[in-house]
Design a protein around this nucleic acid. Structure first.
Lengths: 216, 216
DNA sequence: ATATACATACCATACGGTCGGTATGCGTCA
DNA sequence: TGACGCATACCGACCGTATGGTATGTATAT
């Protein structure tokens, strides 16, 4: 006697419910405990599936690591694409709105707002190149979207200083990731927000904006 | 037939060679593979001691985690205390020299220059509060030394902006930690140095220093 | 003599992974 | 239209090994 889960259609073979439940569980548990400390049994229990389902959907634990990094990349891409910070016509205003938005979504517990890719890559960068690269694609795919706005702002405002849009986008990501690490060390989310205030001040300086004149 | 290792004297019971060898091995291996993925056997093998020595010196794997964070704190404290960036009389010059020094020591492989405390706290912040707090003490103990120079520079230069020396010291640490994460994700140490260039530019701005006039 | 600093054998459990089996979706062809 | 067959999706028992940890024995320093 089997309890039957909703099945995917042949048209969307990736949409098996077990697969998605496992990815969602992995996203949450790995952010909480890290990748190595998360066992396959942990994931199966949380997703309410069996090991058979796990190894049917993912060939190995490492393969799940890659898949969950890609899952993270896709879901966060959609989340940021839908976010309200894109509305200003002024590209610099969009950049500053991005920073404000990142600050605004730092709420609740650490495990709820920290970055899966940053957490995973920290432990596996040397031992699991596939996972490392998947985390890299997630992180740098995201910075690339910000880089566009930075570059537009740079041109529009005629900034000719010795920094590139790419390096500032990377720096923004570094401040975010570092803010998470420091917040974890101090067990205080406010530490992450604090660094974003410094980042905002820095960006305003780079574009010679003193007050709120970047608003649309 | 026992192969006898050099023994500690009763006057310095902490100086057992097995203990230090284990701490040094732990420092290196955990930075490479993370805490959870590092087994007690791994450490014993690398330190060339037996499990008996391990559990004699440390009551548990978690206790080693705390001890190695404290070991890290002590050794890095001594390293930075001896570093050449303290020589300028001008406190701001010392702050900028600190950033330059941190950039200069980012050489070789990632596992050689990244931060043990940051790596560990990222995975254990939720599951091992003792280790988390030990990592926090290491990180914030270090930022406190920088905070002194920042505060002196602030007063000496009459800066009255709406940021504190403590928050800037925390931000500096966040940029470092985040630079490490981004460098791991991109598998490229240059990414960490890149963020320190932005940090240097930011600090110069905060103190209204345009060129090299912070030199002593 | 006693405490320290190990060495070694051992243990219960947890781990990632395998394997044979079963239920369901779906194209095919009579 | 419906019986058939195959692919997909999943179940759950099992396996070999690795894991953190323990118990006991022994050499050395004081």
């Amino acid at each position: 006697m089997y309890i039957v889960m909703p099945r995917p259609t042949r048209q969307s073979p990736e949409r098996g419910s077990a697969r998605i439940r496992l990815l969602e569980s992995a996203r949450d548990i790995i952010r909480e405990k890290g990748f190595a400390a998360t066992s396959v049994d942990d994931l199966c229990k949380a997703a309410e599936v069996t090991k058979g389902a796990f190894f049917h959907n993912f060939g190995s634990k490492d393969a799940l690591g890659v898949a969950v990094a890609e899952f993270w990349s896709e879901t966060t891409s959609a989340f940021f694409a839908d976010a309200p910070y894109h509305t200003p016509d002024d590209p610099l205003a969009r950049v500053l709105a991005y920073v404000a938005f990142r600050k605004a979504i730092i709420t609740g517990e650490l495990k709820e707002f920290t970055c899966l890719a940053g957490t995973m890559v920290q432990e596996v960068f040397e031992t699991a190149p596939d996972i490392r690269d998947a985390c890299g694609r997630s992180i740098f795919g995201h910075t690339a979207t910000l880089e566009n706005d930075i570059e537009m702002a740079r041109r529009e405002r005629g900034i000719t200083a010795d920094w590139t849009a790419k390096s500032l986008a990377h720096h923004t990501q570094a401040v975010l990731q570092g803010g998470f690490v420091v917040a974890k060390a101090g067990n205080d989310p406010a530490l992450a927000r604090e660094s974003l205030d410094h980042l905002e001040r820095y960006i305003r300086h780079l574009f010679n904006v003193t007050e709120d004149d970047a608003h649309d």
